[in-house]
Amino acid sequence: IEEVKKIVSEIQSKQLTRITINGNTYQVNSPEELVEYVRKVFS
């Protein structure tokens, strides 16, 4: 979970619009959307 928080804060600070998780690239339009992807991947 700490690793996830680190990734999320990194993305928020860079305002990235794409994230790659487990080889899948997602278009991310908002931090909320990012959190949803993270929940799916780590749930």
Rank of each mutant, 00 (worst) to 15 (best):
E2N: 09
F42W: 05
G23T: 02
Q12R: 15
V28T: 15
T17E: 01
E33L: 12
E3P: 05
S13E: 12
K6P: 03
K40F: 12
V38C: 09
S43W: 11
T20S: 06
K14S: 08
Y26S: 01
P31S: 09
V8N: 01
I1E: 14
K6A: 11
Q27T: 11
V28R: 15
K14M: 12
I1Q: 12
V4P: 04
L16W: 05
Y37F: 14
I21H: 02
N29L: 14
S43A: 13
S9Y: 13
Y26A: 03
I7Y: 10
Q15N: 09
Q15M: 10
K40H: 10
I1G: 11
T20L: 06
S9H: 13
P31R: 01
E2R: 07
V4F: 15
T25Q: 06
R39I: 13
E33M: 07
V38S: 00
K40G: 06
E33R: 03
Y37M: 15
E3S: 11
V38A: 02
Q15H: 10
V38W: 04
V35Y: 04
V41M: 14
I19N: 00
I21G: 00
L16T: 02
Y37L: 15
T25W: 07
T17R: 06
N29D: 12
K5P: 04
R18Q: 10
V38T: 01
V4W: 15
N24G: 03
L16F: 06
I21L: 10
N29T: 08
V28I: 07
E2Y: 08
T25A: 05
G23N: 05
R39L: 15
V38I: 14
Q12A: 06
E10F: 12
E36W: 08
E36R: 10
K14L: 11
I11L: 03
V4H: 06
T20F: 06
S30Q: 03
R18V: 11
R18Y: 08
N22S: 05
G23L: 03
S43C: 14
I7P: 01
V35R: 02
E33F: 04
F42H: 02
K40P: 00
E32G: 06
E3F: 15
R18M: 12
V41P: 00
N22E: 04
V4G: 03
E10R: 15
E2G: 08
Q12S: 06
V28N: 11
Y26E: 01
S9R: 13
V8L: 13
L34V: 02
E32C: 07
S9I: 12
S30H: 05
V38R: 00
K6C: 12
R39A: 04
S13V: 09
V8I: 15
G23K: 03
E36Y: 06
I19C: 05
S9F: 14
K14T: 07
S30Y: 05
K6I: 08
N22G: 09
E33H: 03
V28H: 15
N24E: 11
T20Y: 07
K40I: 10
T25K: 04
L16M: 06
K6L: 10
K14A: 05
E10T: 07
I1N: 12
V28A: 15
E10M: 13
I11R: 03
R39Y: 13
V38K: 00
N22P: 01
S43P: 04
V41D: 01
T25N: 05
E32F: 06
I1K: 10
V28F: 15
Q15C: 11
N22F: 12
F42L: 11
I19H: 00
L34T: 00
Q27I: 13
E33W: 07
Y26P: 00
E36H: 10
N22V: 03
K5C: 14
K14W: 12
I21V: 05
I11V: 03
N29S: 13
K5E: 15
E3Q: 12
S13A: 12
I19V: 07
E32D: 09
K5R: 12
T17Q: 03
P31E: 02
R18D: 02
L34Q: 00
V35A: 09
N22C: 14
Q12H: 11
I19Y: 09
I7F: 07
Q12I: 15
V28Q: 15
V41T: 06
S43L: 14
Y37W: 13
E33G: 07
N24P: 00
I7D: 04
K5Y: 13
F42A: 01
N29K: 08
V8A: 05
K5Q: 14
N29H: 08
S9W: 14
E36F: 07
V41E: 06
L34I: 01
Y26V: 12
L34S: 00
V28W: 11
E10C: 14
V38Q: 01
E36Q: 07
P31Y: 09
Q27N: 08
E32T: 06
I21D: 00
N29M: 09
Q27K: 07
I11K: 01
K5D: 15
F42K: 00
E2T: 08
E10I: 13
K6Y: 09
S43N: 11
K40M: 11
S13W: 08
I7N: 02
I7S: 01
E33A: 07
F42D: 00
P31T: 08
G23I: 03
T25H: 11
S43R: 08
I11N: 01
P31H: 05
E10S: 05
K40R: 11
E36A: 09
Q12N: 07
T20E: 06
T17N: 05
N22T: 02
R39G: 03
P31D: 03
E36K: 07
T17M: 06
G23S: 03
E32H: 06
V35I: 14
P31W: 15
I11S: 01
I19T: 01
S43E: 12
R18N: 06
R18I: 10
T17Y: 08
V41I: 14
T20Q: 05
T20G: 01
Q15Y: 06
K5F: 13
S9E: 14
E10A: 07
S13Y: 08
K40Y: 12
K14N: 08
T17V: 09
S30E: 03
K14P: 04
V35C: 08
L16S: 01
T25S: 09
V35D: 01
I21E: 00
E3N: 11
